[in-house]
Simulated scan of single mutants.
Amino acid sequence: MAIAYRQRIDDDTEFALWKIEEEANDLYNQLQLNENEKAYVEKLSNGKRHLHWLGTRVLLRKMLRTDEYIDCKVDNHGKPYLVNLPYHISLSHSFEYAAVMISKTHKVGIDIEQIKQKVERIASKFMRPEELAFINNRQKIEHLYVCWCAKEAIYKCNGEKEVSFADNIFLSPFNFEHHGILNANLHKNDVNLNYTVGYLQYQDYMIGYVKGDM
């Protein structure tokens, strides 16, 4: 399967989606992995987690347009980074899709989620009362998913653990559209960062994406 959707944010920043229709072996054969990575893949059960790991790496390879080995590691906070290539990256996945965002100049964050009713049950855990107040009841589920994806994308872009969606990431009121932007702020201790987050409803999935500081 080729790239299902691609969006350029600026000259140095873009994201893309890959619909995972291949078998695990087909994805595996498109990658170059070192011995540690091969051992990690072997430990994954043959299910969605296995396909998601392989799918994000195949998509990353396509976006970087290289057949060379890509040394992709995660730091102490769980944030992926490239050892020998000049790109910031963010990875996400949900059910049939893998998502990757890359930038040469800025930190990035992306999240993709399949839209399901369950988000309503947990809304109070990641939303503040003033944020719940601006949710459009006619499109409540979609509106809540934008909020979740936006906060998750900011969390990934910031790249630090111990950040609470409800207590540290604040969304300004916005009207839900199928493709739009919203303003947000991350505040914790001496960290105070403003973000403009893009979002997109793609079929029955919601995507949040953000470009941070350099």
Rank of each mutant, 00 (worst) to 15 (best):
E120N: 10
K151L: 01
H88A: 01
L171Y: 03
I9L: 11
I102V: 13
A39F: 13
K211L: 02
I169Y: 09
E160H: 13
N137S: 15
Y97G: 06
L144K: 02
K107Q: 13
I115G: 07
T56V: 15
V163I: 09
L91F: 06
E131C: 05
Q201T: 01
H179M: 12
F174M: 00
H52P: 10
H88M: 02
D204G: 07
I112W: 10
F165R: 15
V119N: 10
H93Q: 12
K125Y: 09
M63F: 00
K161Y: 04
I89S: 06
D204L: 09
I154H: 12
I207D: 01
H178T: 07
E120F: 01
R138W: 00
G198E: 04
L17R: 08
Y28T: 04
S90G: 05
V108Q: 08
E22H: 10
L44F: 06
E42H: 14
L59G: 09
M127C: 15
E21T: 10
F95H: 11
Y81E: 00
F134C: 07
T196H: 08
A4Y: 13
K211F: 01
N46R: 15
A166R: 15
V197S: 05
V83K: 14
C147P: 11
K125G: 07
A133Y: 09
H52W: 10
D75P: 02
V100E: 06
T105L: 03
K116D: 02
H143W: 00
H77D: 03
P129Y: 05
Q7E: 14
K38A: 02
N46M: 04
H187T: 08
N158D: 06
H88F: 06
E22K: 11
R138A: 09
A99E: 05
E22W: 08
V108W: 07
